[in-house]
Structure formats: structure tokens, C-alpha cells
Simulated scan of single mutants.
Amino acid sequence: MLRVSPRRSNQEERLIGTRQPHGFNMSMKKESPWDVELHLAAARGDAKRLRILLDSGRVHVDCKDKDGTTPLILAAAGGHIDAVTELLHQGADSNAKRLTGTTALFFAAQGGYMDIASLLLEHGAIVDSCSVDGGTPLFVACQYGHLDVVEGLIERGASPNAHMKDGATALFIAAQNGHLRILEVLLERGAKTDAARTDGATPLWIASQMGHDHIVRRLLKAGAKVDATRHDGATPLFKAAHKGHTAVIGELLKYRPSLGVLPNGESALHAAALTGHMTVARQLVGAGADPLLVNQEGITPLQLAVRHSQTQVANYLRDKVRVRTASC
């Protein structure tokens, strides 16, 4: 899945699982020429050649390269159902794993090949078999937006509340990638709305950070906590303000999020002032945010805007303070 390889310096942008693209390279340094030929035939989807090689008795159906890749995994990853059928008929292990822990079902789900996924499941593939970082076929189907695969896997027993080692659930992955219909299916099947990653980030938090206002709207409707706070003290509103996601902020403000100083010592208006997002500043002040609210360092949004040369925001906040002062 993604690691499929996550870029954890910014955890929000990492993918899931232990991803290997459909065209991953085989490493055959220790394999015999027959092994190599069998792998190549599987990668090409050449079912006839697979049959000839296997019937010769010179090669094992589950021969692996140094990464643990079997012919069945290659055929499934390439979407070659005839080759998958032949290999399963010849006794291929549907649950054979690469060193990353990924199986043929994982790659079928990644590619959106529900016909192959169904065939693998009929031959004993474990629906929630997970990669080394906890990603399952359901996770990677959610990541890549394969709705039919998501529905098919859940119908066959995949858990909508399974989670990776970092705590991310399938709902989190769907929210991160903006897949609304998949998110709705997961919610309908009992996915926990506020299930958080180990750093405290919830599906609503990640959707806000990514700017997916349609996902934010649906999660809030489903009862997601508007002020769910990541461990660093940032809320969905704070992150959306920092990123300048005005549509997301519009959705969040309907549920009365905190406009005050947050556990991270800042307010959403401080984030807008720092980054110079003028429209966001207007939205927040219009909702009641205070231009003179002091953060943990004793600095107001107005002072922060001035300090960082965000002239437009500074002038706007200065005018708001002037009007308020005049009316007192």
C-alpha cells in the first residue's frame, strides 16, 4: 500500500501498507533459469507457457525471487486472470507473501481487479491478511479508490475497523484520499468515525488537512468531533486555516469549532495571520475570532501578521480592531 512506503516526515501524505507498483521489478539472482521463465510468463499473463513449464516438472509453482515474489503474485498484480486461474489450478498458494507481507490478494485489490480477488478468495486467500505495517487488501483498495473491490472485500468479511500499526483505519485512508463513496460505504458498514491514528489525527483531521471539504461535510454529518485534536494540539480548523482551505473552514464553522487558543498555544486565526490567508481571516473573524487574542507567547494575530509581513491580513485585522475600539 502505500510503503506502500510512507513519507513520515509529513505523515499526512504517506500512503498505506507496503506498496509495490504493478510493474515491480523481479530480482532473480538466485533463481534457476526455469524459475525466471516461470516468473516472466506470469508477469506477461501467458497462461499457456505457465502450463507447459509447470507440467514439465522442472519448476515449483510457488518459486520465489529474493523478495519473496511468487508467479501468482505477479499474475495478480498484472490483472492476468487466465494466468491466475492456471496457477491456482496447478496448486499455487493463494496466501504466499512477499518479504513486505503482501499477498496476491493485496495486489489484486491495489489494481482494482475484483474478478481476480474473488477467485483468490474462493481458493482460500485470507481477506484481512496484512503487510508488515498492518495494511490489508481493504486498505489499498480504499487508497486507490476501487469502490467495487471495497464492497466486495467487506461482503467477504474484511473488517472496516482494522488498523495499521500507526493506527490508521480504512476510513482514515478513504478520508485522506478524498474518496467519498468509499467513505460512505465504510460508515454504512460500521466504521468508527473518530478512530484516531497513534498521533491523534482522526479522519476529519486528515480530510481537513488535505482540503477535502466534501469528506469533511460527510464526516461531520456522521457525528465526527469537530475539535478532535492531534497530539501536537492542532484541530481540524487550525490545520485548514494554516493550509488556506476556505471550503473546509466553511463546513467546520457550521459545527461551532473552538476559535480560542488551542492546546498547541495558538488559535486558528493565528494560523491564518501567519500564512497570510486573507479569505480565511475574514471567515474566522466573521465567526467571532478575536484579532487581539494572545497566544502562548503573548502575541496577537494582528501582531503576528505584521511580524511576518502579511500586509493584507494585517490591514484587515487592524481595521477590525479600530472599528471595535470606536464602538466601545
Rank of each mutant, 00 (worst) to 15 (best):
S5R: 11
R307A: 12
L259D: 00
K192S: 11
M28H: 04
P257A: 07
D93S: 13
V150D: 02
V185P: 10
V59S: 06
R181D: 14
K320T: 09
H39L: 08
T275D: 04
A117F: 03
L186Q: 03
G286L: 12
K64Y: 01
G288Y: 10
V149Y: 01
C142W: 04
G211M: 06
V150P: 02
V36I: 13
A268K: 01
V150C: 04
K165T: 10
G190L: 05
E251V: 10
A247D: 13
E184G: 04
K165Q: 12
E184V: 08
L147F: 05
R322Y: 15
E122M: 14
C63E: 09
I16C: 10
L2C: 09
L180K: 07
G78W: 01
D290P: 13
G152L: 08
R44S: 13
H179T: 02
L74Q: 09
L138A: 03
E122W: 09
T136K: 07
S118I: 15
A47S: 11
W34L: 11
W205A: 03
A273N: 03
A326I: 10
N264C: 15
L237D: 01
D35K: 14
A273Q: 04
R307H: 11
A109P: 04
L171Y: 14
L53W: 00
L54W: 01
N177W: 08
A314R: 00
G178S: 00
L121R: 03
P263R: 07
A117D: 04
H146N: 05
L293E: 07
H39E: 05
S208L: 06
V4P: 13
A287T: 03
G223A: 03
M278P: 04
R156D: 01
L40T: 14
L40Q: 15
R324E: 11
G167M: 07
A92M: 06
L219N: 01
L87T: 06
L105P: 03
V285N: 01
L187N: 00
M26I: 14
G134R: 08
G135Y: 03
L237P: 01
V313W: 03
P203C: 09
L119V: 07
M26V: 13
L119W: 00
L284D: 01
G23T: 12
P33A: 14
V321A: 13
G134M: 09
T85I: 00
A314K: 02
S131A: 14
G23F: 11
H308F: 13
S129R: 09
H123C: 10
V323S: 12
S258H: 07
